[in-house]
């Protein structure tokens, strides 16, 4: 009896218990959070099969036949979700044009149906963030003032105060957000592409993301003050002061100073 009790209270028992509990919680969380993954977009088995073919032809060279990734070349795509595929392929960043500090956006290489098929295939490999609904990204439903506060606390240090873009280290950069579609803005926050951190729903809520979109859509309005000069701050203003201001004034000093003879 005593020996049985000894066995029951093995030294590692509490640790094992904690680990088991953690695993259980993670499992439950994974099931609950991934449940909307299948609900949001209707992807047929046929689409997934089409997506797999597209993937094998266009992506597998770097990401591997099973999207498992290759060390130092391309990351695994298991669990990145449909949102990541929709963003990366939809903005033309993937397939990547060339190696460099960062994949540049270009004209998308696939139409939306093909992107959905690719996304469906990648989503089928493991649960991940889904493509947001139209309501989730509708800026007119958001609060731009709250978006301003969220943006300048979380986004402005890289993208600039109004999303004009900015430089990062070693040739990387945060792109301008003025021409990015609301869906892509939402997906970028959700999936954290390239150098960008992930802003999941615990960090910035789904409504908060919509507020950010509302703020960024306000920036597409004309500036009350006239031409925006890129909206990148005092450097552009100083440049214009010298180029246009001093330029015009020097031209007029020469004109005024010229002798009529």
């Amino acid at each position: 009896m005593k020996s049985l009790a000894k066995k029951r209270y093995h030294k590692a028992a509490p640790l094992m218990l904690v680990l088991l509990l953690l695993a259980a919680i993670t499992g439950v969380a994974a099931v609950t959070t991934s449940s909307p993954a299948t609900a949001a977009t209707q992807v047929s088995e046929d689409d997934v099969a089409q997506g797999e073919k597209l993937f094998a032809a266009n992506c597998a060279t770097c990401h591997g036949m099973d999207a498992q990734g290759q060390e130092d070349i391309a990351p695994s795509l298991v669990g990145v979700g449909a949102a990541a595929v929709d963003f990366q392929v939809g903005t033309g960043r993937m397939p990547m044009q060339m190696s460099g500090p960062q994949a540049r956006a270009k004209a998308p290489q696939f139409d939306q149906d093909q992107i959905d098929q690719l996304a469906g295939y990648v989503a089928s490999l493991g649960a991940g963030p889904t493509v947001p609904t139209a309501e989730q990204v509708d800026g007119s439903l958001g609060d731009p003032a709250n978006g301003m506060e969220l943006f300048r606390t979380n986004c402005a240090m890289c993208h600039g105060s109004v999303g004009g873009g900015g430089a990062l280290t070693q040739g990387k950069y945060a792109p301008s957000l003025w021409a990015t579609t609301p869906t892509h803005i939402y997906e970028a926050m959700l999936t954290g592409p390239q150098s960008m951190p992930v802003f999941n729903n615990a960090n910035i809520s789904s409504e908060g993301k919509r507020d950010v979109i509302a703020y960024l859509e306000e920036q597409r309005q004309p500036s009350p003050g006239g031409l925006k000069l890129g909206a990148i701050g005092p450097v552009a203003e100083g440049f214009w002061a010298w180029l246009v201001g001093i330029g015009l004034i020097i031209a007029s000093t020469v004109w005024v100073g010229a002798r009529s003879s």
Partner: peptide, 22 residues
């Protein structure tokens, strides 16, 4: 030409520093 659009920067708060802060 727009100059110093303070409405873009927002009121002072010690925590945020945006790109293009000059």
């Amino acid at each position: 030409f727009t100059i110093n659009p303070v409405w873009n920067y927002g009121p002072y708060d010690p925590s945020p520093v945006s790109a293009g802060t000059q």
